[in-house]
Amino acid sequence: MSLWEFANPVRFMALSGKVLPWVIGLTALTLIPGLIWGFFFTPEAVNFGNSVKIIYVHVPSAMMAINIWVMMLVTSLIWIVRRHHVSVRAAKAAALIGVTMTVIALITGAIWGEPMWGTYWAWDPRLTSFLILFLFYLGYMALWAAIENPDTAADLTSVLCIVGSVFALLSRYAVNFWNQGLHQGASLSMDKEEHVADVYYLPLLLCLAGFVLLFIALVLIRTRTELRLVRLHRLEIRERMKDA
């Protein structure tokens, strides 16, 4: 038995239906305690004061924002190469989650930036990259929404996702270059992932796991919805052809 067995929509529906309650349960078991731990039971940090608590929503959402795009790239490639319906529907299902994560990362980053750097927005390479990532998500979703034929939409959005990934990566380096070019050495990055003590690290880890599980649960539900929509679409076409 190979992994591709799950690419069959029927098998996927059966399996994901069985797995889903477990994933939802695990999400609740990690995300809720993680967030509560992070919010109520973590001490102040020396440099950041209590504002360090924002890390528990900011870092997980930022990591998910990038990883979800990577997941969409992989599933789009699988669709282009092997034409498995589950794959491309999963990419579509993930897009809205990805864009939400990007918005959360941007908003929490801006709110955190105000007390830390004295400004809501700076054209710091990381912030700028996220704004660009947000634009790419928007374009991807807009293309899905604009095309009526689901198979054409699947093909075109996959092509866009692949080409877009290349340009997103290019933008990442371009932005690095561009900002350093403007203000030499005045970087605002805080290297937050490095030197974080265990008191903050453990709840952060739990939150990260919670966000990953939440994403898996949501993407399973949304992929199931998308597959049902495909089936619904087919049934409607068949009905219309019978009527005609």
């Binding site: 209590n50 504002s51 608590k53 929503v57 900011h58 939400t100 959360i104 709110i111």
Partner: peptide
Amino acid sequence: GKYADAILSSWGATLALLIALILVTWRRS
């Protein structure tokens, strides 16, 4: 402390967006 506004608004925004996402997903499903 003095960061109360920042913390509460960022956590509030995050939770609101996540809950909205979950509700939208669930309703559509």
